[in-house]
Amino acid sequence: MQFVIALFAASHQPSARRALRFAEAALAGGHQINRLFFYQDAVSIANNSQVQAQDEFDLPAAWREFIERHQLDAVVCIAAALRRGLLDSQEAQRYGRPAATLASGYCLSGLGQLHEAAQQADRLVCFGGD
């Protein structure tokens, strides 16, 4: 089965971890993940400036490794990202900010990417809507 997974809650919320476990299980079960889409506070998962205490689980790092290992299409809504301080190098330059904060493996794009993926996949699974 082909999944698109949408995430809406911040990296410190339980659903951000549940979404990762679901994604791992989907691939382990032989399914495909066509796209991961990060919206609302879930854009914080893609923030490379978060630092966890050494004895705490680093969920953003776990997501980065998972996306990298499986070469997944990970899209972050650009409007939601900008208003929460998530910028790639192009946006950092455009708005005169000192650094890019978007982790590697993610790309910024529009909401149409969620609609497009939801139309094509077998299932849209959402985590952490309000």
């Binding site: 609302q40 409007a79 939601a80 208003r83 529009g110 149409g112 969620l114 609609h115 497009e116 309000d130």
Partner: peptide, 23 residues
């Protein structure tokens, strides 16, 4: 499900709707 003054959630829900409408 969110009030208009409870953060950006209401606006972001509307943005998702309008993006779908544009398609």
């Amino acid at each position: 499900r969110q009030a208009p003054w409870a953060g950006p959630a209401a606006r972001e829900a509307l943005d998702l709707a309008l993006a779908g409408g544009a398609f």
